[in-house]
Design a protein around this nucleic acid. Structure first.
Lengths: 176, 176
DNA sequence: CATGGTGAGTTCGTTCATTGAACCTTCAGC
DNA sequence: GCTGAAGGTTCAATGAACGAACTCACCATG
């Protein structure tokens, strides 16, 4: 989306939301953050986004209070990007997009399956648990690889995401 | 989003979905379609989108099977754009974006309030009816103007959206 | 001490999309 | 025959995205 990105004529919270998360790549960065990606280079290799664009998006997500940049080692100084509560609140958006893509684009097989970790039930369209009848917070969501997933063995992040995992827990990349 | 729009490296239904609805303006067109906007000029004046962009978006939404172009009069031939079932299935996406925008962007007041028409209860964050405990399909949703709405008296579409309305029913613009 | 490698960026020229204004077309009504 | 409305298309200018190359700070190795 353009950086002349304001839908300024719009009296609408949807438009306000899209000004922040509606730019190209932004929601995919957020998705990866849910998957446990936290480091610049991991986002880079998993998304295939140009470096300059990634840097811009991380910066604006941080300014919007969706990601928090935190130092995880001094010397050399290294930061990781973690979802804030405001970022975690985007889960229904990410989830409903994924459901729609799977159900309404032809030829899309389930790539990843999301279940309520407590009971093992697959989540509904908004990320709720049909069995328990409650909204499942992302921390209680288990992600499993689906039938449609055709992994890229060359990508360490992709490899790490093959195992069942809790959302938001940091990935362990067995870097080569 | 760029028309070099493929997130081609992404094995992911979210990425597939964003290839279709992730471009600039697209989701706002869909939102307006939920609100009952159907005509080219109404989209144009309500969105403030450049004409060329609107034409492109309507075309790609039609190709994606989200909007259907249907003739509503011959001579002069006039078409309207209506959401298909696949388009209506985007409601959770639109709804969750609106909820997030209202709750997580500072200074955003509720612009529009959505209730379950059958019982009058305001929808929950997931688009469900808290009273009835069921997901409410868009056709059963009533939209009312909210406190934060500051209407533009010059816009016929904006005026039409001031009255309480069912989603998806066509607006009546008292064109001047 | 020189060399190489890694993580996290920035710079830069090219390509591509968005913008806004102007123009075009078909028809209806007067 | 003129005017106006609806629904577009065309065009030049601007602004983002892209991808490759470069920077910089630090650590490890010989």
């Amino acid at each position: 989306m353009a950086l002349g990105k304001d839908y300024s004529t719009q009296q609408c919270s949807i438009a306000r939301a899209l000004e922040i998360v509606g730019e190209r790549w932004t929601l995919l960065v957020v998705r990866d953050a849910f998957y446990g990606v936290r480091r610049y280079n991991d986002f880079l290799s998993h998304l295939g986004v140009p470096r300059a664009v990634l840097a811009t998006r991380l910066k604006s997500l941080e300014q919007a209070g969706i990601l928090e940049k935190r130092r995880y080692q001094e010397s050399p100084p290294r930061d990781e990007y973690v979802l804030t509560e405001r970022g975690i609140a985007l889960w229904p958006v990410v989830r409903s997009l994924g459901v729609w893509g799977r159900e309404h684009i032809e030829g899309v097989l389930p790539m990843r399956v999301f279940t309520h970790a407590a009971c093992g039930t697959e989540l509904g369209s908004y990320g709720e648990c049909p069995a328990c009848g409650t909204a499942v917070p992302p921390r209680d969501v288990e992600m499993l690889p689906g039938r449609g997933l055709d992994p890229d063995p060359d990508n360490p992040v992709g490899r790490a995401l093959l195992a069942p995992r809790r959302l938001l827990l940091p990935i362990e990349t067995d870097r080569v």
